[in-house]
Design a protein around this nucleic acid. Structure first.
Length: 431
RNA sequence: GGAGAAGUGGCCGAGUGGUCGAAGGCACUCCCCUGCUAAGGGAGCAUCCGGUGAUAAACUGGAUCAAGGGUUCGAAUCCCUUCUUCUCCGCCA
């Protein structure tokens, strides 16, 4: 959520910056609402102040045993207008809140301007795609003999789900374990385990609601209330600090969390229908940081580096992209995508997305920190900056390991770094 | 699931209709005193949203005592609903 003050005082500039994302802000409507809000709120508070003063007088008079009829008559005269104002004001405020809640974040100055993914900028390429001396297979064909089973998943649930067996299931588990170990022991993250079902407040906090409800799976309870299946661990983990005032000395907070992620993938019919690339359920190891505002830029770079370290250790060629203004997610101020090389598609595919949200999520969540003189920031609570990124998407990493490590005989070479997690085996072979 | 009890500021904890945003204590910040491992004195110290102002300082209004509704001129205090926590019983991995 943007700062309402920014909208009030710099509406034109905000609209201009939002335009680089392809978003049109209805400034005329906003200004009209704001004018009404200002006069109504001022009037309401004026009436409330009168009522409070008179009520206090009544108390004093009655305490002294004197007649309070005059003051009570005065209050009665205010009543009708005050009640009307107290009904209208919250409606108006809610209406404005609703508008502000659906405005995306402003792009950071360093973000390239552009309207779609063609304007994204590659900033780094790591590793060299392997040259194969046999026809490459995609992960579906490689996995068919190794325990990757889509037909049975369709029977159990439906399309866009997968069943993993034997070495394939172990490889999947090994990848998650490996990532967690690297991030906790080498990058200083604290591992957390969270609920996979969250309430609407949590979804609002990270920006999935109110705009993107159709992307979420919902669970309706007997009493009619509902919970949402998390689309990413970002939601429960970031909401750890919702409504909190964190001690500045405790910053930065760095969490790593392995969870399944559930996405309805509404509107993506026909896209990546084959294989494990786009599933309704997939595992991800997520990195989340809460930091002081002036640190968020460098922390974002560092966090992206932590995700890159996994790809490097697994010897998977990748490239790093900075998303342009028009291609970023709703809450992000700046985003790097990491794309891994998939030989069967002869291209790089997204495997991680690392974003700096600045105060956008923190403002929705009222997640703050209190400075102290030890860190040179005494005084008032201040909004945190939040950063997160995949470190990495486990399912897509599995795909990358299978495709990049495939051999002519249908076996798959296990990356060296992963072997301790695979009982030391060097190759996955048909069992 | 059943029966009871409770939810107050960063923490502990008073407060059962009026001058209470809220005593007292702890923690924290500043000042003074003292001087050696610890103590004494004084002051300050909630958050959110408004108004005037320079998106400053300052002044000022409103809201907030789990959340939402209600009664009342006036609610932390009374009533209703919900949530959470604790104790006992039941059930369960």
């Amino acid at each position: 959520m943007l700062d309402i003050q920014l909208l009030r005082n710099n509406l034109a500039q905000v609209a201009e910056r939002l335009a680089t994302r392809g978003v049109t802000l209805d400034t005329v409507n906003f200004e009209a609402l704001e004018a009404e809000r200002k006069s109504l709120q001022t009037r309401t508070q004026e009436l409330q102040a009168k009522r409070n003063t008179l009520s206090k007088q009544i108390g004093i008079l009655k305490g002294k045993g004197e007649d309070a009829a005059g003051a009570m008559a005065e209050v009665a005269a205010l009543k009708a207008e005050l009640e009307a104002a107290e009904v209208r004001l919250p409606v108006l405020l809610a209406e404005m809140e609703e508008i502000v809640a659906t405005i995306p974040n402003l792009p950071h100055e360093s973000v390239p301007v552009g309207c779609d993914e063609t304007a994204n900028v590659e900033v780094l390429r790591w590793g060299t795609p392997r040259v194969f001396d046999f026809p490459v297979m995609d992960h579906v064909d490689i996995g068919a003999g190794l325990g990757l089973d889509f037909e049975t998943a369709v029977k159990i649930t439906g399309s866009r789900f997968a069943l993993l067996k034997g070495g394939m299931a172990r490889l999947h588990r090994a990848l998650a374990q490996f990532m967690l170990d690297v991030h906790t022991t080498e990058h200083g993250y604290t591992e957390v385990y969270t609920p996979y079902l969250v309430n609407a407040d949590s979804m609002f906090g990270t920006g999935q609601l109110p705009k993107f409800e159709e992307d979420l799976f919902q669970v309706i309870r007997a009493d009619g209330s509902k919970l949402y299946l998390i689309p990413t661990a970002e939601v429960p983990v970031t909401n750890i600090v919702r409504g909190e005032i964190v001690d500045a000395a405790a910053l930065p907070l760095k969490f790593v969390c392995h969870t399944p992620c559930f996405r309805s993938e509404a509107g993506s019919y026909g896209k990546d229908t084959r294989g494990m690339i786009r599933q309704h359920q997939f595992d991800k190891v997520e990195l989340v940081q809460m930091v002081m505002p002036e640190k968020s830029g460098e922390s974002h770079e560092a966090l992206t580096g932590h995700a890159e370290a996994i790809l490097q250790k697994l010897e998977l060629p990748y490239r790093k992209i900075v998303l342009c203004s028009g291609d970023m997610g709703f809450s992000a101020a700046k985003t790097y995508d990491l794309e891994v090389w998939l030989p069967a598609q002869n291209t790089y595919r997204e495997i991680s997305s690392c974003s700096n949200f600045e105060a956008f999520q923190a403002r929705r969540m009222q997640a703050r920190f209190r400075g102290d003189s030890a860190v040179g920031k005494p005084g008032k609570p201040e909004l945190l900056h939040t950063i997160n990124g995949s470190g990495l998407a486990v399912g897509r990493t599995l795909v990358a390991v299978l495709e990049n490590g495939q051999n002519a005989d249908g076996s798959v070479t296990v990356p060296t770094a992963l072997r301790p997690y695979m009982g030391g085996i060097e190759k996955l072979t048909y069992a």
